[in-house]
């Protein structure tokens, strides 16, 4: 309790004399307690709200020039579906065996394993990027050079490309996670589509039924 020493505690005539002599200081301990309590409360309850954003660039659909699906040899197609499951195949989709290979089958993976898969298929680029990061950290190159080189490495035509396709059960979170993986694994060219080809859908449905 804050008390002004007015001689209440001691009582008696002598106490009054002492009170006059004593300073008019107030015991500030409780106030300090309170102030620090408030301070601690504010510091502890403050959560820094820092939303960030992913910059996305979607190509404006060009009706006259439908997507050419050539140059898919070095591409991975990732089909995102329900329960955070991922199916994928490499290269073009083949409904039946051609000279290029047997008909396409879907492989199964999920978000804990997909990073490893992508890095394995994109070893060269990842190695180059890691090397670049090391150079940058050792201050051998400037930030501008770093950004420039990073762009060049990621833009290399022979790199792994990715096509992310989502079916009706995929969540928005899956797509964001996948785009994130693209960044982590150094895949510079990727696209997001929300429609599967009917033959892909059919294959996916049979795989989903096995789950």
């Amino acid at each position: 309790m804050a008390q002004v020493p007015e001689g209440g505690g001691d009582g008696g005539g002598k106490g009054k004399k002492r009170a006059k002599r004593g300073s008019t200081h107030i015991d500030m301990t409780p106030m300090v307690d309170l102030a620090f309590l408030l301070l601690t409360f504010f510091i502890l309850t403050t959560t820094m709200y820092k939303p960030s954003s992913l910059q996305m660039t979607y190509p404006v659909p060009d009706k006259d020039n439908p997507q050419n699906e050539t140059a898919l040899n070095n591409a991975i197609t990732l089909l995102l579906t329900k329960n955070d499951q991922i199916y994928y195949y490499m290269g073009e989709f083949r409904t039946e065996a051609t000279e290029k290979g047997p008909p396409t089958t879907l492989e199964h993976t999920d978000f804990s394993k997909v990073q490893k898969l992508l890095v394995e298929n994109n070893k060269q680029t990842v190695a180059q990027l890691n090397d670049l990061v090391r150079q940058f950290n050792e201050k051998k190159i400037t930030e501008e050079e770093y950004n420039e080189k990073r762009k060049t490495i990621k833009g290399n035509k022979d790199n792994l490309k990715a096509i992310i396709k989502t079916d009706a059960d995929a969540k928005y979170r899956n797509m964001i996670d996948m785009v994130d993986e693209m960044d982590i694994c150094g895949i510079g060219s990727y696209g997001v589509l929300d429609e599967l080809k009917p033959e892909e859908q059919a294959l996916l449905d049979t795989e989903k039924a096995k789950l």
Binding site: M56, Y58, T166, Y172, N174
Partner: peptide, 25 residues
């Protein structure tokens, strides 16, 4: 569901507004 988000993105891209660059928070 991503398909719902995709509808919004298609609206962004529709002729007349054609927003191809946007931020995903």
């Amino acid at each position: 569901n991503y398909s719902r988000v995709a509808e919004v993105i298609r609206t962004f891209q529709s002729p007349g507004i054609q927003i191809s660059k946007f931020k995903m928070i």
